[in-house]
Design a protein around this nucleic acid. Structure first.
Lengths: 150, 150
DNA sequence: GCATGTTAGTTTAATGTTGAACGATTTAGC
DNA sequence: GCTAAATCGTTCAACATTAAACTAACATGC
């Protein structure tokens, strides 16, 4: 692979780990979210529905933070969900800067149907990992500075 | 987190591993590619330059395969690089369906300057992993079906 | 040679994504 | 109370991304 650049031993090891982590994440995402296509949902739309399902109504800023996306992006994703009547936006009465985004009955039914399927897909991908490997993965994520806030 | 859905022990373990893997990949990507903004390069544009740098001239189909992106996307990314004269497209003489995409002198100079910086960034993120953890990460990626072809 | 099929690349429509500029609203300092 | 700063959301331009429909070039079988 590395025809034009020779780094130190330590650099090469880090690079190999980086590439593997990225590829793994991309491959798993592609496979795990395949069942979303049937419902014409994108990964981001699913992310919004899932966050509302598990955390209750949220303002757009919180959604952006949860999903690690920009504010302008959430405006677009929520607008597309609202157009399909899967979510609804309500102005917060006490602070009119906020919208509260919440699931409609239709949206709740959809995510309630989809989420177990989603988990089953992940389980079939990750289920072959034993407890030791999970612990190792957690340790690695902690070490490379994974922040758990938000 | 999981207020509305209780899976099996095995499902919860898989879900936790999945979330950690995804968050880790997102956080690392964001930090590692921060130095690209200074050169007004996107992650995909950097990916194309890097592939050409290490593998020599490639056709767009091969680029798409390497970067796990669609053909139409590569058309756009390469076009934007070509507009800045960082790459050049040449018709293959023997099979006129192909373009050979290759670096210009400017493009080569840019990626030659950027790549060491890129590796150094990754090394500072992953360098704290020891050999055991790297082995463990590789084993995990293999297990969850990471395909290394392409 | 010609019909058929395959492969490389383009185009289009729809959505996602960001950063920056902007408007509306609330809060803090005075 | 009033100004200044901070916060929430929108809009815009630019680019990314995909799937699907399309064109161009090659390959195969007859």
């Amino acid at each position: 692979m590395e025809l034009r650049y020779r780094g130190s031993e330590q650099e090469n090891r880090a690079l190999a780990a980086y590439v593997k982590l990225m590829r793994a994440a991309e491959c798993v995402t592609a496979r795990v979210h395949r069942h979303l296509a049937a419902e014409k949902l994108t990964v981001s739309q699913f992310g919004v529905l899932e966050a509302l399902f598990h955390l209750g109504p949220l303002c757009q800023r919180d959604l952006a933070c949860k999903l690690l996306k920009s504010g302008g992006n959430i405006t677009m994703v929520v607008a597309n969900l609202e157009r399909r009547e899967l979510v609804r936006r309500r102005r917060d009465a006490s602070d009119r800067r906020f919208y509260l985004v919440e699931l409609t009955a239709t949206g709740r039914a959809l995510i309630a149907k989809l989420f177990p399927r989603h988990v089953a897909g992940i389980a079939s991908e990750f289920g072959i990992l034993d407890a030791t490997e999970i612990r190792c993965l957690q340790a690695i994520c902690r070490k490379i500075g994974l922040r758990e806030e938000c």
